[in-house]
């Protein structure tokens, strides 16, 4: 068993266990914390697959930004409302179970029965190369320079707007 396989098992087990823990906790804040752990384990899995950029964005965007927002919302709600929020009525429960089952069947089919797709014939080393930060950076600053700059202005406008609309007092 080499290191790669060993790491895969470690991160895989952490991801699976935290996912189960997340959906079984009654306190939503603890659920959210387990979800963060789950994201971190997934990021580890991406690194073993040589997709460093996705791993880093997984940590920064999901674990960093989105989950913090989640936690803020949960903590702003009062504790007695939290329980109500997560008490599902039977109909919703059945609906949720059906959707989960369909997704599960799809995944099982894709992994065990569908076989490799005809589209995945590219050289493996090429796709590994595409996942590195270096190649993504090169693409961003050459072919995608216009979207990159536009996104910069978008963030600038959003930052100014947040300040204007939320600032307490004007001089």
């Amino acid at each position: 068993m080499n290191l790669e396989v060993f790491l895969f098992f470690v991160f895989g087990i952490i991801a699976a266990v935290t996912a189960v823990l997340m959906i079984t906790r009654r306190n939503p804040v603890i659920s959210a914390l387990f979800l963060i752990l789950n994201f971190a384990a997934l990021a580890g899995l991406y690194i073993t697959l040589n997709a460093q950029f996705i791993a880093v964005t997984q940590i920064i965007v999901y674990a960093g930004a989105i989950m913090i927002l989640f936690l803020f919302v949960l903590m702003l709600l009062r504790p007695d409302n939290q329980k109500k929020l997560f008490e599902l009525n039977p109909k919703t429960k059945i609906f949720a179970m059906i959707i989960a089952f369909v997704v599960f069947v799809q995944l099982v089919y894709m992994i065990f029965f569908a076989g490799p797709s005809a589209n995945i014939t590219q050289d493996v080393s090429k796709s590994v190369e595409a996942g590195t930060i270096e190649s993504i950076g090169r693409e961003l600053f050459t072919n995608y320079i216009v979207p990159f700059e536009a996104a910069g202005f978008l963030l600038l406008a959003a930052t100014i707007g947040a300040l204007v609309l939320a600032k307490k007092k004007f001089d």
Partner: peptide
């Protein structure tokens, strides 16, 4: 903010790629 919204409109009009249209639209809308 008036200037950023105009920049977003100009990006939308000049775009040759749907990605740029989307970013221009968001710049204008925000």
């Amino acid at each position: 903010i008036l200037q950023t919204s105009v920049l977003g409109m100009m990006l939308m009009a000049a775009a040759k790629d749907i990605l740029v249209i989307f970013l221009g639209l968001e710049l204008m809308s925000i």
